[in-house]
Nucleic acid binder design. Structure first.
Lengths: 263, 263
DNA sequence: TAGAAGTGGAGGGAATATCTCCAGTTAAGG
DNA sequence: CCTTAACTGGAGATATTCCCTCCACTTCTA
């Protein structure tokens, strides 16, 4: 007699009534897969293959596919909470006394999250990936973001012709600056966010001090050479080391937000 | 006895002593290929396959490969003059009386060229494509650009912490805004260039009027849905029509530069 | 009209990605 | 400790995609 394995998987995934817990070793493997996927998606984006994820996790592909019937299921399992974090961020940013600081806080933290997680950026900016749950969460972000923008405009800090819909494009733009420079300097995107923020203020006398020096000529060439080609896939040596701590662990850190402090 | 066919091709390519002119029909086909490549590279980027170019040109792949021994040769043949045009633009921009206008002129025209030609953007921002000749031309651009930036800074218009190396990144950023929005509105990148330029001025009282309205919520969703997936390759119907006028023909137009006028 | 020049597009070869299958291994429960 | 259901690895089926070659056939040219 056959047990519906998918049902077990799904139930575990959804956290509801579990017909039967996973066998101990299976559970260990499942966690390895999740950890591996989190790390590789963050570093190489959502186009990472399940084969790579399996190899990096130290398990066979079959194991991955039994636990997650499709790539989308895996993405959904991983990113639901991350998108929820963005939603929370948006709501928190509404509680700043200074509406401009709320606006800057939202942008800086959002882009910081995306800078550390290429997969998250792809998920947020595109509609290709992510299933129903992610889609619903994404929709909910719209409202608080509208309010963040309106508040900052009403207070006279944010230029009045800025639109809430510009947020997505601005995010994509800084994301590009990040992808272009990250190979040389991981926090260089902040420089370009300051440029842009100085353009979004309703008025200003001076410029905001920049948190980073510009790239040198050689660094630009390096960035150019690595752009779009920059490690699209893990290389062999990537698989030899065990999974080191994943960057995403830092994401909820209250790390210093340079730009917010400057403003 | 065998004639070195490559030599013929190359000689024709290089415009120097031609051992023998191409047969009439061959010459026609060669031009069809160039025209087709120009159009498809502009629309879909340099990753367009030679198979697609051949099909769109209405010739066989073999014909393409006899004329252009490799994809790189074809790219080089097409883009040498385009990169030269950028170099000319940089030099011209130095002749503006107002250094700020020179700076804006350079950025707006450069990005305008790239917005109409995805292949050109890829060629400029990356080192992957383009052979020796293109590389040399690209290097020559550095000097006048340095001067454009320095002049605008010296005159007190451009913020003093801006670096000439920021130009590449800024170009990439606006390029992303363009790719994100172009499907909905081809000139939307100008909106984001104004945002950014307002951030690059040393000081300002007010904001510059925007040349475009922001996207509507539905338009953002459309853009999201099409981003990165947005027609990566020509579809079947693309090949049925003959080559319509290529966008690149407009590139040297002295079309109205909205932003320059506004400033 | 001979034969050199040119042509189309099938298909070889090399990647890449997703997902299936099953002989063999391992944990859990009696 | 032994049985057996659960689980495992990874080869390989299937399906793409892309670059480029090859050659029987066609077309131009002298």
């Amino acid at each position: 007699m056959l047990v519906d394995k998918d049902a077990v998987g799904r139930a575990t995934e959804m956290g509801d009534l579990s017909p039967r817990p996973l066998r101990k070793d299976a559970e260990v493997n499942r966690e390895r897969v999740l950890r591996s996927a989190r790390e590789l998606f963050a570093r190489y984006g959502l186009q990472t293959t399940l084969d790579d994820i399996a190899r990096h996790a130290g398990v066979g592909v079959g194991t991955v596919y039994r636990r997650f019937p499709s790539k989308e299921a895996l993405v959904e399992a991983l990113f639901e909470q991350r998108v929820q974090a963005i939603l929370d961020l948006a709501k928190n940013s509404l509680e700043f006394d200074d509406p401009w600081k709320g606006f800057v806080n939202f942008l800086e933290r959002l882009i910081s999250m995306e800078a550390k997680d290429r997969g998250l950026r792809e998920l947020v900016l595109s509609n290709d990936y992510g299933g129903e749950k992610v889609r619903l969460l994404k929709e909910q972000i719209e409202e608080p973001v509208n309010e963040i923008v309106d508040r900052a405009k009403r207070a006279g800090y944010l230029r009045s012709d800025f639109s809430a819909t510009d947020i997505v494009v601005v995010t994509a733009m800084i994301g590009t600056a990040d992808e272009y420079c990250a190979y040389v300097d991981e926090s260089m995107w902040k420089r370009y966010l300051v440029f842009l923020l100085d353009g979004l203020r309703a008025s200003r006398e001076l410029t905001t001090p920049l948190p980073n020096e510009g790239l040198s000529v050689d660094e630009v060439k390096e960035a150019m050479g690595n752009w779009k080609r920059r490690v699209q896939r893990p290389n062999a040596s990537e698989f030899l080391r065990g999974s080191p701590g994943c960057k995403q662990d830092e994401i909820f850190d209250h790390q210093n937000l340079t730009i917010l402090d400057i403003q």
